[in-house]
Design a protein around this nucleic acid. Structure first.
Lengths: 180, 180
DNA sequence: CCCGTTCTTGACCGGCCGGTCAAGTTCTCC
DNA sequence: GGAGAACTTGACCGGCCGGTCAAGAACGGG
């Protein structure tokens, strides 16, 4: 599955043939279809796995932080770190979002992640520390910033994860204008 | 090209065959290869066209607004409106960013757009109205928020463009914490 | 009215692709 | 040690795909 992930990420899902995967692995085609029902099923498995991993990572990072705003910040940093260490998978997730047939799986995972963040946002709103806007939209905004900055600066431009995460947090919390 | 765009957006680039496109158009295959060197070339043409359109739209919206911060805001609203009216193309742009071979064209267009925004951000920093962080990172952050919110709420959840744009602007300018 | 250019057709080609399957080989448990 | 389950092989299949091309049709200037 690791090898398939890197092939898919490098060549794209469609241009990567099952023959190519099994050949690179030095096994026969039969063994592929023994473990996976189809090429699509393998891809979905990779997707589900990735989402599970990311979620665990976020939960671990947030663990026992009581402050909702700090929790959001830790979530951003944890996501950024995971994006950094799983570039290939990030590419696959992005590709998956462009194909209707992968949407359901993707959607489920993203909804879970957003719901997590939204909970903290809601808490923040109740505490009067976060402005009273739709928590789901705000969560998605955070997710959008984090993902995009990770792809553009950590992946493409190889900038330091911490530096990018720093700016991402600053931007998400106080926008362009805030923060002295 | 319009028909091809909708086929690509609905079925994906790879799964859509040239035969399918020309059949849907009621023409022979030869006419396709008379006007386009290859399937890939057609796709690139669509991409370039889209980027040109979006850029024109943004420039028109910003036109003669002197305030850099207002310019950024108008840019966000214009982008959001364009994303709303060009869902198919947005999908294609997103797909293109996952395939190495389309990256160069995509990159060039995005760099131009980001450079535009970054100019306004820089002005804002000079005026002391925007915090002193890397203007390119901030511009990408704005772009990330706008694109993601458009896809998630305008495209997927069919929410009103204006409402989403409103939140996007609020978030970009003042983040989660700011704004009363 | 004719001839060269532009444009159009669709059968065809070589090649690849996802998936199957008959034929093994290896493992496991009695 | 034997029998059945678990696993592995790779040739093979039907089908599709991007792209070519010989054969025209339509057009346009002289």
């Amino acid at each position: 599955m690791a090898y398939a992930t890197s092939r898919f990420a490098e060549n794209g899902y469609h241009p990567t043939s099952v023959a190519e995967i099994v050949q690179g692995l030095g096994v026969g085609k039969g063994v592929f279809y023994w473990y996976f029902a189809s090429k699509e099923e393998l891809f979905l498995e990779i997707l589900r796995d990735a989402q599970r991993q990311l979620r665990r990572r976020q939960e671990a990072a947030i663990a026992d932080e009581p402050d909702p705003v700090r929790r959001i910040e830790l979530g951003i940093r944890a996501s950024m770190a995971w994006f950094d260490q799983n570039r290939e998978v990030v590419k696959l997730l992005q590709f998956a979002s462009t194909e209707e047939r992968f949407a359901p799986v993707l959607r489920r995972g993203q909804d879970v992640a957003v719901a997590d963040t939204a909970r903290h946002v809601k808490e923040g709103i109740v505490e009067g520390r976060i402005r009273d806007l739709d928590p789901f939209v705000l969560s998605h905004a955070v997710l959008g910033v984090t993902g995009h900055l990770a792809r553009e600066f950590v992946h493409e431009r190889s900038q330091s994860v911490d530096d990018v995460a720093e700016v991402a947090v600053a931007f998400c919390l106080e926008g362009l204008l805030g923060g002295k």
